[in-house]
Every structure is written in C-alpha cells, then in structure tokens.
Design a protein around this nucleic acid. Structure first.
Lengths: 187, 187
DNA sequence: ACATTCCTACCTGTCGTTAGGCAGATTCGT
DNA sequence: ACGAATCTGCCTAACGACAGGTAGGAATGT
C-alpha cells in the first residue's frame, strides 16, 4: 500500500460520502474497502473531521481542474455551458450518487467546521467558473454574472437531488431540458 | 400526554429530521424532547422506519393542505406562484432547517422503503399543485405543465439547500429573484 | 376488569478513538 | 561498511458512548 494508501482512502471515502454522506463514513468500512485495518487510517488522517475535510478539499480541487480543462479544450463558452450539467450527471451514472457538496449541505448542521468550509469550496469553484463562462458567452453582464451563476448551480444541484430520489437519471435530463426551455440555461 | 404524545412525537421528529435527517433521529433524544422515555415511543410507532414514514406522510399531507388553502384563499394563480417559494423559506427561517423531502432525498440510499415512498409523496404533491397553478396562470400548456412544475420544484429545493449551506437566508431570496429574472418563475 | 400508556433494565451492535507493539525500510555514528 | 537508532505503516485489543430494539412490570383512565 505505502503512500498509495492515503490516496486509496481518499478515493474510497469520497465514493462512500457521495452515497451515504459524512455520517455514513465509517472507519471500519473504509478500512475494509482499502484493505487495511481501521486503526491504520489514523496514520494518514488524525480524525474523522480531518478526513472529511481532506475529501471535500480534494473534491473541489479535482472539479476546478476538470472545469478549467474543459474550458481550455473547447474554448467555446456556450458549448461549455451546455456540457456543464454533465459533471453532475456522472455522479448519478456512478451508482446514483450525489454531489458531495449537496450531501454535505444537507448534513451541514452535523459537520465539523473544517468540513463545512471545504464543502463551500466546491460551490465557490463552480460559481466562479460559471460566472466567468457566462460573461464570455455574452449571456450576462459582469455585474449579473455571479447571481446567475449561483442560480444555475443551485438549480442543477436540485435537479440531481430530485433525480436521485427517483433513482432515475432521465429525470435529470428532462429537468436540464426544462431549464433550457425556460431560459435559465442557454438553449 | 395520552393521545397527544403521538402528535408530540411526530412534531418533534419532524423538526429534528429537518435539521439532522432520518439518520439524526434518535429515540432517546426524541423521547427527551417530548418528555417521556425512549421505550415508550414503541407504543406509538413499531419501529424507526414506521416513525420515519409517519413523519414523512404527515409532512406532505400538511403541505398539500397548506398549498390548497393558499390557492383557495387568493384564487390568483400568479400570486400563488409568487408566494410558493415562501413554503421553503419558512424552513430556513425556523433554525436554518431543510425541507424534509430534500434531506431524505440525500439520504435516499439509507432509507427504509416505506420512508422512501412517503418522501416522494411530498415532491408529488408539490409538482401536482404547481402544474395545476401554472396552467391556471396560462404560463404553460397542460402538456408542458408537469415538466415545468418539476423544474420549479427542483430549482427551489436547490436554492434552499444552497442557502442552508451558507446559513444565509438572503441567498435564498436572491436565488428566487434570479429564477424570476431568467424566466423560470413568473416575474 | 381491562386496555392503554409509560416505566426500568437490559441486550446486541456499531461508532470514533486510543494504547501499545511489530516488521521493514531508512538514516546515522563510528 | 556495519550495527544502532529512528521512522513508517500497519497491526491487535480495547475503551466509552450511543444506536435501535425487547421483556416485563407499574401506573392510568374508563
């Protein structure tokens, strides 16, 4: 295992947390997933709060990189906005999982402060990226961009949450289509 | 306590579940809230799954009644659509709580089947009501109404979730305003 | 009398966390 | 170059707290 253990723990914890939340993370189950014993996790993370914060941080870092890559590769802001919901769709494809940020927003009142902070990071990253791309696409003025970006982020999160509650990914697709039809997202 | 105990348990469980989810419901804490002992709850609810289902059912029943009353009293569908987000706003006002349905949608994978079913009832009630009012307001054709109703429900849920994660009710208000500005909700 | 309602006491299981030790690699003094 | 000391990663075993749930009896109201 060696130094890969830490990465393996992070990956397993992320998957579990997207399915069962921060409260659903168990050192014993996590250790079993990775192939070590529960107490060994403490060699990599001092506490569950630290683990949760590390998972959330890695989550938004990965997302930020992914979004930037997408924008760099297509360099077409309208196309980027069209592809944006797919980042949420993939969680549903992968075992009907939820965005980690949404799950932790629900669990907000039970989270250690460190985890709360890192959870917000994901939303911040998404909103900043959306705001930038909306301006590039000429859809909004720079002053309106943040509000509109937040609206898109919240609406897409809600769509994912609803689709999950029906275990039906097509619900997500039709919701996104409705957002386009109503003007929230570019058609 | 007598027959009021059952109601008191339901009310306390609902409040707790809106703050900490189904997983955050504890027979001991619940009993302490109501003023009885944990084992006594089993006289009213055979299991935690039964309690959760009863709470979720009562939740959507109350919501259905509330929405119908609103429509009956104002009989102005556009005004009803304007007031609709307030039903979600009130949960935030009341201790930054979440819609029970949203919380349970997040916890979906951990819920007993009975609870899953009753959780969907809340969304069904909201969507049916929204669809009806949208048609009355002449905003959509009857064929489009359900898709648009779902979009509004999901978006407002997402707005509530986001505002909760910032403990900032003004975020909810500006999100709703953005939905109006973009055309998802009537201005 | 009788059912309803609530109680005490306890069961089993799981949780996060800690103490203390063991084996292999690495580093360092001589 | 070689033994000693240190570090790294993992282990077993156990802790106290809390979970949902059960058995059986005491109070309560009709």
């Amino acid at each position: 295992m060696s130094a890969n253990a830490r990465e393996a723990i992070l990956a397993a914890a992320r998957k579990t947390a997207q399915a069962h939340g921060y409260g659903g993370l168990s050192y014993r189950d996590l250790a079993a997933d990775v192939g070590i014993k529960a107490a060994s996790i403490y060699h990599h993370f001092a506490s569950k709060a630290d683990l949760g914060a590390a998972v959330a941080r890695r989550y938004w870092e990965d997302t930020a990189a992914e979004l930037d890559t997408m924008l760099a590769e297509t360099s077409d802001p309208v196309r980027c906005l069209h592809l944006y919901p797919n980042t949420f769709r993939r969680s549903l494809e992968d075992g009907n999982r939820l965005c980690l940020c949404s799950f932790m927003s629900a669990e907000y009142a039970n989270l250690p402060e460190v985890v709360q902070r890192e959870t917000q990071g994901f939303a911040d990253v998404n909103i900043a990226w959306l705001g930038k791309v909306l301006v590039m696409a000429g859809m909004v003025t720079p002053e309106e961009s943040e509000a509109r970006a937040r609206a898109i982020f919240a609406a897409v999160s809600g769509a994912q949450l609803f689709a999950r509650s029906r275990s039906d990914i097509s619900q997500f697709d039709t919701l996104i289509e409705s957002y386009r039809a109503s003007g929230l997202l570019p058609a």
